[in-house]
């Protein structure tokens, strides 16, 4: 909410081919800095001040195609001008120019369109289908020239030694493992739940905008819904838990524990707990969000990395709850 995205990227939701980015809706609070600038400082610490920028910008050029040289020039200029997050702004500036160049338009026009419409349309879904749709364009680009349910990437990885079932070349289902030595079919104990979480529209976790007074006022109004641990009434009744009751949560796999308040609602499955991931702020400097309370999801979610894309297995465990 408080940041301009440093890059321009494809529009993920719409099926049309389009470019989008994020524009800050509110001013950043306090002395907060943009993430790219923070990363640059970290790189300076790790790689030494001299080489840091070239290394980071070079890597970005290789990975994201953002040219390093003009970015460096813009960064140095913006730094000299005393800009707050010069690296982020430099990336944005160069990104805008480069993207506009690719789209055969001016940076001004691209910026204007994005501000007004949120997306810059390149081609509609129908035009894309016309050109690339598989039925019209057989043979496909696969090795066999046919549609293949086979991953050449995973095949390659397997040859490099990644042979666990996760790297199967064919799409295959995996049974989730939420408990030790128990399958998903086995019944949960009376106080045991699966776990899931989601966002609130008013705040992202731990960011300074959680302290925005107006957003905090909305959170206060909906405090029970937003900060509470959602729990189905059928299960709550058996455990003698009512909305607002203080509860203790324990991760059965990692042993992590946290406190929370129950919010009894039918909007959640009876075998699952739900939590909004925006609360439980522990930085007392963020006075409003600190006072809001709530349960931080990182107190419940263990460091359990999924082997293929290195995402967190943030819901593969069960949680036991008890009235605190």
């Amino acid at each position: 909410m408080e940041r301009d995205e440093p890059t321009f990227y494809g529009n993920g939701v719409n099926q049309d081919l389009a470019v989008t980015t994020r524009y800050a809706a509110i001013e950043p609070m306090y002395d907060s800095e943009e993430i790219p600038d923070v990363l640059l400082k970290l790189t300076e610490i790790i790689s030494g001040k001299e080489e840091a920028f070239d290394k980071l910008a070079g890597m970005m050029e290789g990975l994201a195609g953002l040219p390093a040289a003009p970015t460096k020039a813009a960064w140095e200029r913006l730094k000299a001008e005393g800009e707050k997050s010069p690296f982020t702004k430099a990336c944005r500036e160069v990104g805008l120019i480069e993207t506009a160049k690719r789209l055969h338009t001016t940076p001004e026009n691209l910026d204007k369109t994005l501000r007004e419409k949120g997306v810059y349309h390149e081609e509609s879904m129908h035009e894309l289908l016309e050109q690339y749709a598989v039925p019209h364009k057989l043979p496909t680009t696969t090795a066999s020239g046919r549609i293949e349910f086979f991953s050449t990437l995973f095949d390659m990885l397997r040859s490099q030694g990644f042979t666990t079932p996760h790297f199967s070349v064919l799409a295959r289902p995996f049974a989730a493992e939420c408990r030790e030595n128990k399958t998903m079919d086995q019944a949960l104990d009376e106080d045991e739940f699966y776990f899931t979480y989601g966002k609130v529209p008013t705040v992202s976790y731990g960011s300074t905008n959680s302290n925005n007074p107006v957003l905090a006022a909305i959170n206060t109004w909906k405090k029970d819904i937003y900060t509470g641990v959602w729990l189905h009434p059928d299960r709550a009744e058996k455990l003698g838990i009512q909305s607002g009751d203080k509860i203790r949560l324990k991760n059965t796999l990692s042993g992590q524990e946290a406190d929370g308040h129950a919010y009894v609602t039918r909007k959640v499955r009876s075998d699952t707990l739900f939590l909004h991931s925006a609360f439980g702020v522990e930085n007392p400097q963020l006075t409003r969000s600190y006072a809001m309370g709530g349960t931080a999801t990182n107190h419940l979610i263990p460091h359990n990395v999924e082997p293929v894309v290195a995402g967190f297995r943030s819901q593969e465990f069960t949680i036991r709850i008890a009235k605190a």
Binding site: W221, D224, S243, Y263, V264
Partner: peptide, 11 residues
């Protein structure tokens, strides 16, 4: 507005 202590607690 009409009740001072708004509460949404409880199903």
């Amino acid at each position: 507005n009409s009740i001072r202590q708004h509460s949404q607690a409880g199903p």
